[in-house]
């Protein structure tokens, strides 16, 4: 029922007391409430944005730093891998083996397990069987040091020193 209907009913009903019209109480807001709300939300958003942006920047910087560290470690890993590859080559192993007193074993004798029979000439190795190999290995066998470098193909660098081996051994880098 609307206020007007309620008023008309009241008029048509006999009453001892005069009709009193009471305004319906309506809750109102201050005119600035909405703009303030919007401004508040915007301020909150801006603060949030600022916080997020700051966090992104901080974490972005951390990512950049970590990526730089990863690049550096990857590069270092590449160097170390190259060193291991060189050290693991047969020529390097042969040199180390000779330096440890090992000698080639050119004489085979096999033990046949089921029968215990020995096939071949069973004799001790003296180290003089392959003097060429022993001597060659001890001095690097006359082979070129595995420099891991590529042929110089010119460019501004004409020194020809593209050897990675030189890069590997030159671990002291001057400060500029």
């Amino acid at each position: 029922m609307s206020a007007l209907e309620r008023f008309e009913i009241a008029q048509s009903t006999p009453s001892a007391s005069p009709a009193v019209v009471a305004p319906v109480a309506v809750k109102t807001h201050h005119w600035a409430a909405l703009p303030l709300l919007i401004i508040g939300l915007m301020a909150l958003g801006m603060v949030g944005h600022l916080w997020l942006a700051t966090q992104i920047q901080v974490q972005g910087r951390q990512i950049v730093n970590l990526e730089a560290t990863m690049d550096s470690l990857t590069a270092e890993n590449n160097i170390l891998t190259a060193q291991i590859t060189i050290i693991d080559t047969p020529s390097q192993l042969a040199q180390r083996a000779v330096s440890l007193g090992m000698v080639p074993e050119p004489q085979t004798s096999l033990l046949v397990v089921p029968t215990g029979q020995i096939l071949g000439v069973d004799q001790a190795v003296t180290g003089s069987e392959m003097p060429i190999i022993t001597a060659a290995s001890a001095i690097g066998n006359g082979l070129t040091w595995p420099s891991l470098a590529t042929a110089d193909t010119g460019g501004a660098n004409t020194s020809g020193d593209t050897s990675v081996a030189s890069q590997l051994t030159d671990t002291t880098t001057p400060q500029v």
Partner: peptide, 19 residues
């Protein structure tokens, strides 16, 4: 374009770049 140094391992390139 000028090729200054061919095929340097990135470990050393990084040092040059940083300097």
């Amino acid at each position: 374009y000028a090729l200054l140094y061919p095929q340097v391992m990135d470990y050393y390139e990084q040092q040059v770049d940083e300097a």
